[in-house]
Design a protein around this nucleic acid. Sequence first.
DNA 1: CAGTATACGGAGAGTTTCTCCATTTAGCAA
DNA 2: TTGCTAAATGGAGAAACTCTCCGTATACTG
Lengths: 183, 183
Amino acid sequence: MRADAQRNYDKIVAAAAEVFTERGMDAPLDEIATRAEVGPGTLYRHFATREDLIDAVVKSWMAQIDSAATEAVESDLPTREVLQKWFNTYVARISRNRGGPSKFATAMGKPDSPIYSKCEVLRLANDRVLTRLRDKGALRADVDALEVCRLVGGVAVVADQAELGPDDVSSMLGIVIEGLLRE
Amino acid sequence: MRADAQRNYDKIVAAAAEVFTERGMDAPLDEIATRAEVGPGTLYRHFATREDLIDAVVKSWMAQIDSAATEAVESDLPTREVLQKWFNTYVARISRNRGGPSKFATAMGKPDSPIYSKCEVLRLANDRVLTRLRDKGALRADVDALEVCRLVGGVAVVADQAELGPDDVSSMLGIVIEGLLRE
DNA sequence: CAGTATACGGAGAGTTTCTCCATTTAGCAA
DNA sequence: TTGCTAAATGGAGAAACTCTCCGTATACTG
């Protein structure tokens, strides 16, 4: 990649992160181009679709997801509390920018989405946590990580769109958690 | 209301119902105007926002929700099955048009939304069903209808956006249901 | 330092939303 | 019936956003 191209790529990703934070993940791409001091053509050459840009912005989030999953796997707390913390972190992470949960919910389980690889990170992190708890005998046997990603993602989407606070999210997650625990 | 205005109002609602079915609830309003053989100005005078139009289209759905709730209340089946049927009907109803679940999820609990009254119908129907089951001692005591609307609505949103089939919906609802039952 | 592949950027076309207002029409009163 | 007026119409067009094309500019190579 030519040096100027790399420079512009980085400027665009930085500008996108800013604009997504300020105006949500449905913010006008032209504003991102302007903020990056770049023409729209340049933005669209680097990122063919909005999702390609999101993919780049979101790359740095994934390490945090993984470390939260590891913490959950290694935790000695009661299952309820482990899940409460893990799901809350999960929701907070994907809800960082307005409109974000919806992007993940749409791409989850769609291999041709530009952000599919990120969804896989989410799903695998969830799988690690759920597998561990299931092995301890704390969960229902038929719980599937993809399904849980969707369900928890649904909570995140609703909270995002209806502008709910953390308490509402926690209590919805509480119901989901009860539904996952071994009876 | 003048006779020609009434005529156009009806034509617009009929056209909207068609177009929403074909192209989802985010379909261009101008297409609805064209289909109704009416200028955009006329459409916007009758319905200031997209949601006002949705409100009119959706009016006829609410009786069906109510009768499904009544059926659930009067049912003698096991709680799990009553809820499975009721929630599935609920989701199917609000998912009739692509993009629909998201509209309801956004408006739920927002008194100034044009479709708030419809959300109230949904919430009250849910409340009837949940109250009945709670009175039978089948549900956790702290279950709130609004919260359940949101949770089930979240399932509908995810299913709509990720284009999931009825089986995926049922199994997600299964988890929610387990979470609601008295332990 | 010249040549070439690569990248730039902005003008502009295509969509969709929404408004304004000159024109038309329904309903009414004489 | 006719004429008046308030109500309603509809389409031109402004504004916001997405996305492309291509003439121009720039970075790397030898």
